[in-house]
């Protein structure tokens, strides 16, 4: 199975990169883009065929390595 892990900074954490991108978009005339938050996206190819197991494994590696719980949170999709 494949798991997709989306890691983003927690809402309470300032994102200097997202802010810079938003400023750039504003200077390009995209005033309709109110804010940007930058994150990371991982695709994990997993040996298991069980969705529940895939989700559990993806969550374990996200907790251990992919995300830093001090500043980041994550969301998982499996298929």
């Amino acid at each position: 199975m494949r798991a997709r892990v989306f890691v983003t900074l927690k809402p309470s954490v300032f994102d200097p990169q997202g802010k810079t991108i938003a400023d750039a978009l504003h200077s390009l005339g995209y005033g309709g883009v109110e804010d940007v938050r930058q994150g990371k996206y991982f695709e994990l190819d997993l040996a298991t065929q069980e969705a529940a197991q895939a989700r559990k494994l993806a969550a374990e590696v996200a907790d251990k390595l992919l995300a830093n719980p001090v500043i980041e949170s994550y969301r998982i999709e499996v298929e």
Partner: peptide, 17 residues
């Protein structure tokens, strides 16, 4: 040390990027 949890907290990109 921060990533290892030996000292609390984390580093973000510099505010000037």
């Amino acid at each position: 040390l921060l990533e290892a949890g030996l000292i609390p907290g984390a580093m973000l990109r510099n505010r000037t990027v």
